[in-house]
């Protein structure tokens, strides 16, 4: 009797917490899931304006513009299409032309991307997995030995 009652209590409490947690996780996941778009995907099928998305690619050489008012504008590419990105904050110290970056933000009506965050990696030889995959899909990725795959699309020779 005692054991049974104890079990019942534990199971009831456990089930209640699990259900609440699952509900929390599910609703939170729906709101917080951010889809990644490569430039080619945006060109084919752009996400609705105002939806929070992640984009990524290589920063095009010579595309970085730093307006006097602060922030930066630059273009990322996967070799097939480009995205122009506007960023109001200060760029990460590791941000460099030719490097793979990922940016979080929204597209406006004119397909300009306004980034809220720009992620560049601590390690300059690091390629974000999303970007590596986008480049592989665009056919401009050369798989090398582990950790040394590299971009092989247009302009590859100018990127170090």
């Amino acid at each position: 009797m005692r054991q049974a009652r104890k079990r019942l209590w534990m199971i009831a409490a456990g089930a209640a917490v699990l259900i609440v947690a699952a509900a929390l996780a599910f609703t939170a996941m729906r709101d917080a899931m951010v889809f990644f778009y490569s430039p080619a995907m945006v060109a084919e099928n752009p996400p609705p304006p105002g939806q929070r998305v992640r984009v990524g690619g290589l920063v095009v050489n010579g595309s970085v513009e730093r307006p006097a008012s602060g922030g930066a504008n630059f273009t990322v590419t996967d070799g097939r299409a480009d995205i122009r990105i506007t960023f109001a904050g200060s760029l990460p110290d590791l941000f460099r032309e030719g490097q793979g970056i990922v940016a979080d933000g929204v597209f406006d009506e004119d397909a300009r991307f306004t980034a809220q965050t720009v992620l560049a990696k601590h390690d300059e030889s690091y390629m974000p997995p999303e970007v590596a995959r986008a480049l592989r899909e665009s056919g401009y990725w050369q798989d090398g030995p582990p950790g040394t795959g590299q971009y092989a699309g247009p302009g590859a020779e100018t990127r170090r």
Partner: peptide, 23 residues
């Protein structure tokens, strides 16, 4: 999602703030 080859996603702080923090 990546292994399944679906469109890539990221799950950011809003998810954890809304699910882990209340617990």
């Amino acid at each position: 999602v990546d292994i399944m080859g679906w469109p890539m996603i990221s799950v950011g702080p809003p998810y954890f703030d809304a699910s882990a923090t209340p617990l």
